[in-house]
């Protein structure tokens, strides 16, 4: 007959068995601290789920390329639909090819896969096919509108003109340019027809 003592003993045994099995399961699931299954991941790699060597993104319409983005290295972050780029080259081609291609380069950039915007940073240089050179700190290329814009100080130079100011908006399709404040333009030689 099962006396109260025997029941208590059985219960104690059952509890001990349960605790032991719990311990065994948890040891299997979580390796002990300090043991990393692979080489220590850098911050970037731990966030980025995909690191690519060399990336090429282009947008075209009516069969011709509107802009082409090339980078040496890209870290793709799906959570934020963003690609962090290094050693970047963005060339933008207006519909009217006569207006010439604009090529922008910068050490770093971020490409948003949703909006198709590219934020170039770290010192941006640009050159138009007509020889106009342009420098600023950072630039945002609004892919959907084909507009290059910045709020930073800008400087444009070519053989006849030096133009400086703060803030700029350049429409690639029409080559229309706006410098938004503190403008100084120097036309060298001032020769005219």
């Amino acid at each position: 007959m099962l006396t109260a003592g025997k029941i208590r003993l059985l219960l104690a045994l059952a509890i001990v068995a349960a605790v032991v099995s719990l311990i065994v399961m948890s040891m299997k699931k979580f390796p002990t601290h300090g043991q990393s299954p692979s080489a220590v991941a850098t911050d970037g790699e731990r966030q980025a789920e995909l690191t690519l060597r060399g990336i090429r993104v282009n947008e075209s319409s009516n069969g011709s390329t509107r802009w082409l983005l090339i980078a040496e290295k890209a870290e793709y972050d799906t959570k934020r639909s963003q690609v962090k780029l290094a050693d970047v080259r963005l060339s933008v081609v207006p519909v009217d090819a006569k207006l010439g291609e604009l090529v922008l380069t910068s050490p770093t950039a971020t490409y948003n896969t949703g909006t198709k915007d590219v934020n170039l940073a770290g010192g941006v240089k640009a050159r138009s096919s007509k020889g106009m050179e342009f420098t600023t700190r950072s630039v945002r290329f609004i892919g959907s509108h084909g507009v290059v814009t910045t709020v930073d100080p800008v400087r444009f130079t070519d053989d006849l003109l030096t133009l400086e100011g703060n803030g700029m908006e350049f429409n690639v399709a029409t080559s229309a340019l706006k410098v938004t404040s503190d403008v100084t333009a120097t036309y060298r030689g001032g020769k005219s027809q």
Binding site: G165, K178, V179, D182, T184, T186, Y187
Partner: peptide, 14 residues
């Protein structure tokens, strides 16, 4: 001689 122009804003057509 060079012509120097200063202003608040500049816009140029394409």
């Amino acid at each position: 001689l060079p012509i120097q122009i200063k202003s608040n804003e500049l816009s140029s057509d394409g």
